[in-house]
Design a protein around this nucleic acid. Structure first.
Lengths: 102, 102
DNA sequence: AAAAAAGTTGCACGATAATACAACTTTTTC
DNA sequence: GAAAAAGTTGTATTATCGTGCAACTTTTTT
């Protein structure tokens, strides 16, 4: 067992700029469509790294396997609200907050 | 077509107090477990009523049927993140915001 | 109190999330 | 640069959501 260093932690904005280019570019615009979902995986990954956990450790706490965690973090899978809550509560000891922004 | 009056709108806290009793009582404590999911349905219903929409009108905007909306508002069904986004975006013209609270 | 509108519930079917495990690839460690 | 750890991906199975429609109940309107 070891502690993961936080050197890879970066802000979402920073990450997106690097990965998809600045706002206004075609690639970035295309990306923006799937943004919310992407953000979810990113947030979960950030939370995990901040706690210094591996995907496998998180999986064990949540009661699933690392393959599933990997897919969620990479937005390969849509998730149910209850699953998201389970990950956050059991995995991080926090809770999910939902809001509708107008 | 008619406009629904907002007389039934009430705060979540008010509603929960009425329905489950004040904090500390056994019934209320039991309720707190499923709280977040309940809250989701409640929030969706509040948003709909604030817009003066019926379940059927919302369903049409979202591209589903009123039966499904009813079940979601009453927390009979778990929902996927993508479905929640669809309801909020197409139905209310807003967007979903997710956060992890520690 | 009858009619209309709104909301709930039952059932069936197709789509897909959740789960499990193993093999493979990438990253980190020594 | 070899070994170990971490992460990704393929495949199969099970559970459940999302959709559609109809019948029923409750609420609102006239």
């Amino acid at each position: 067992m070891k502690t993961i260093k936080n050197k890879n932690l970066k802000s979402l904005d920073q990450f997106v700029d690097e990965q998809y280019g600045k706002k206004g570019t075609k690639k970035r615009d295309n990306f923006e469509k799937g943004y919310e979902e992407f953000k979810l995986g990113f947030i979960l990954q950030q939370a995990r790294l901040e706690k210094g956990m591996t995907q496998e450790e998180l999986a064990e706490k949540v009661g699933t396997n690392k393959g599933y965690i990997s897919r969620v973090e990479n937005n390969i899978k849509d998730v149910r609200i209850s699953t998201l809550q389970k990950i956050i509560e059991k995995g991080f000891g926090g809770h999910l907050e939902l809001a509708i922004k107008m």
